[in-house]
Amino acid sequence: MLTVDFDRLGLKPGERVLDMGAGGGRHAFEMYRRGADVVAFDRDADELGRVNEWFWAMKEAGEVPEGANAETKEGDALALPFADGEFDRIVAAEVLEHIPADIQAIEELVRVLRPGGTLAVSVPRWFPEIINWKLSADYHNVEGGHIRIYTEEELVDKVTKRGLEFEGHDHAHGLHSPYWWIKCAVGVDNDQHPLAKAYHKLLVWEIVKQPKVLKLAGKVLDPVIGKSLVLYFRKPQAAA
């Protein structure tokens, strides 16, 4: 289930790309399939171990183009262990809302992006997220949980003040917002509630089978209640 549009990001085979806050690796896997030189970066060593296993399995299964490379790297988003301008493209999907020092993390992303390179940042969208917070404190009051809700204007301002140019926005996962509203209403850990259970089956059907009817529903709902806000930026060529 991808949040970022890699065609819009401008990803090309052979480019060096960073998935910052890779988690389970969903975006890293897609970039690897597209022939990129991928670094999946996260602070969770266990997650990265599983991502590395999938990288190996993809290569063994012939799912990646000849010459594509992928690796994992553990570390701190506030001190990325990479050279200035090392990456052509960067993805930071659903991670900044977890980081207290988000401006410092943004500055690190800008630093390691090459001039002319592009960055995609996704965060929970304000409207669906504020409903979750109001329905349930347990939704975000957990270790490593969401510590803020961004407006588009706030996040664009934070990134552009660090030297990048804003190129546009998108919304994703419109079908997922109602699921989380249900979860927050009945209890975020209450997976056996009939309504939550039924909606979860719908989402599994969407992800696994990708039926046309749900694809169409998603396209209609994404601009209205899409759970994720996706912002695209470019580093000016003249940047140092």
Rank of each mutant, 00 (worst) to 15 (best):
A120V: 01
L119A: 09
G145Y: 13
L96H: 00
Y150C: 01
G117W: 03
A105S: 11
W126Q: 13
I130S: 15
E154G: 12
I106H: 07
N141L: 15
V142Q: 13
V123F: 08
W133L: 13
T160D: 08
G145S: 10
P100C: 02
A93P: 02
V121I: 15
Y139A: 12
A101H: 13
H98Q: 02
R125Y: 06
P124C: 10
I131N: 08
D138P: 11
L155S: 02
R125F: 01
L155Q: 04
E154A: 13
T151A: 11
V112M: 02
E143V: 14
E107D: 13
H146W: 12
G117S: 13
G163Y: 07
E94I: 00
K158C: 01
I131C: 07
A93E: 07
W133G: 05
Q104M: 08
I131E: 05
G117Y: 08
A120D: 02
V112H: 05
L155D: 03
V159T: 03
L164P: 04
K161Q: 12
R111N: 02
Y150W: 15
E97C: 04
K134N: 15
I147S: 08
S122I: 07
E97N: 05
H146D: 01
V159L: 10
V121C: 11
I130V: 15
A105Q: 06
E152D: 13
G163Q: 10
L164Q: 06
Q104V: 08
P115G: 07
G116L: 09
P128S: 09
E129K: 06
I103L: 14
T160S: 10
G117E: 10
G144L: 12
N141P: 04
E129I: 03
L164S: 10
K134R: 15
V159F: 00
V121K: 06
G145K: 09
G145I: 09
E165N: 15
N132E: 14
L109N: 00
G163M: 03
V112K: 04
V95S: 00
A137I: 06
F127H: 06
Y139L: 10
A137M: 07
R125T: 00
I147M: 10
R111W: 05
L96G: 00
P115W: 11
V95M: 10
E153L: 10
V112D: 03
W133C: 06
E153Y: 12
H140Q: 12
E107P: 01
L119W: 04
A105L: 04
E94M: 05
E94A: 13
H98A: 01
E152P: 07
I106P: 09
Y139G: 05
L135V: 07
V156H: 03
H140A: 14
I130M: 15
I103H: 07
G117Q: 11
H98D: 01
F127C: 00
D138Q: 14
E107M: 09
R125V: 00
I106S: 04
E129Y: 06
L135H: 02
I99T: 04
G144A: 13
S122R: 10
V123Y: 01
T151G: 12
P100H: 03
E97A: 01
W133I: 11
H146E: 06
G116Y: 07
T151C: 08
I99H: 02
R125E: 08
E94C: 05
P124Q: 09
A101V: 04
N141Q: 15
P124M: 12
